[in-house]
């Protein structure tokens, strides 16, 4: 079973000619088949965690380790991480002018699967998945993210999630900017992938809203660059009622270590 292990992860970023520590010792274990929600206020470092796992060059790892099935993820290049089975659904996917969605998806699937998917089955696979996400077939001929609405960008991210079938999927605020209908559609896509039991999901969100559609096994509160508390789905209800205040003001910390099976 695929397992992502994050141990005592410290990450800094350069801003205004100064080095700032954003992640201050994150511990978390995500196993295939599990869904972990990471919740936290703005600026707590949730997105930094997501991008550090994916290998964004802006972030410097200053301590700790990340392994996927024992392999050192931090030693891998960005594309190697993806081929090893890590996927990041981005909050703000970038436009790539002149590169069509269909060309992009096929190039990506070829890289991840190690061989070009058979054309006929591939076209069918893409079409069906797009239909389930309620995406117009004409979408495939548009340029990647160019002129996409917020909802279209998120559908496109989840389309990739479904087609690329990663071992560990990190969804960075996939719910932000979506109306309820789009949120449902996108959540159904995530749930289809979860239902295979073959993906470990790390769901990063600011709001509890998406958790109505995607039930987490574990909820972690992220504050001040680390996991401040861990629990089950009930922790989300508590956050819904009480907000993050207790955690941002250095309130009770009910468990600094990872939740889930490792706790």
């Amino acid at each position: 079973m695929a397992t992502l292990e994050i141990r005592d992860l410290h990450v800094t970023v350069e801003a205004d000619n100064a080095t700032k520590e954003i992640l201050k010792g994150v511990d978390l274990t995500v196993k295939q088949g599990e869904t972990h929600a990471i919740m936290g206020p703005n600026g707590s470092g949730k997105s930094t965690l997501a991008y550090s796992l994916a290998g964004h060059p802006k972030y410097t790892i200053t301590g700790g380790s990340v392994t996927l099935d024992g392999e050192d993820v931090l030693e891998m290049s960005v594309d190697e991480r993806a081929r090893a089975g890590l996927f990041l659904a981005m909050q703000y996917p970038v436009e790539i002018p002149g590169v069509s969605v269909s060309n992009f998806l096929r190039t990506s699937a070829t890289a991840i699967r190690g061989e070009a998917p058979k054309l006929r089955t591939w076209v069918k696979e893409v079409k069906e998945t797009m239909a389930e996400l309620q995406m117009d077939p004409a979408f495939a001929e548009r340029n990647v993210n160019e002129g996409f609405s917020g909802g279209e960008k998120k559908r496109h991210e989840i389309l990739q999630l479904e087609l690329l079938k990663p071992k560990i999927a990190v969804l960075d605020e996939t719910d932000s900017g979506l109306d309820v209908d789009a949120l449902k559609t996108v959540s159904e896509g995530v749930n289809r992938v979860r239902a295979t039991g073959e993906v470990g999901t790390l769901l990063i969100t600011h709001y509890t809203r998406i958790l109505k559609y995607i039930q987490p096994d574990f909820v972690h509160v992220f504050a001040n660059g680390r996991i401040a508390a861990s629990g089950g789905a009930e922790l989300a209800d508590q956050l819904e009622n009480e907000g993050y205040e207790a955690y941002t003001k250095g309130g009770p910390v009910t468990g600094g270590n990872s939740g889930g099976a490792a706790a």
Binding site: A54, G55, H56, P57, S77, V78, D79, R81, A82, R83, F87, L88, M90, P93, V94, E95, I96, P97, G98, V99, N103, F104, T107, S108, A111, I112, N143, V144, Q160, L164
Partner: peptide, 22 residues
């Protein structure tokens, strides 16, 4: 752009080619 393409498994060299062709 390169990060986005690489994060989908596309090697850096091929990602550059895609961007320039695009």
């Amino acid at each position: 752009q390169l990060f986005y393409l690489q994060s989908r498994g596309i090697p850096a060299e091929e990602a550059r080619r895609l961007v320039v062709r695009g």
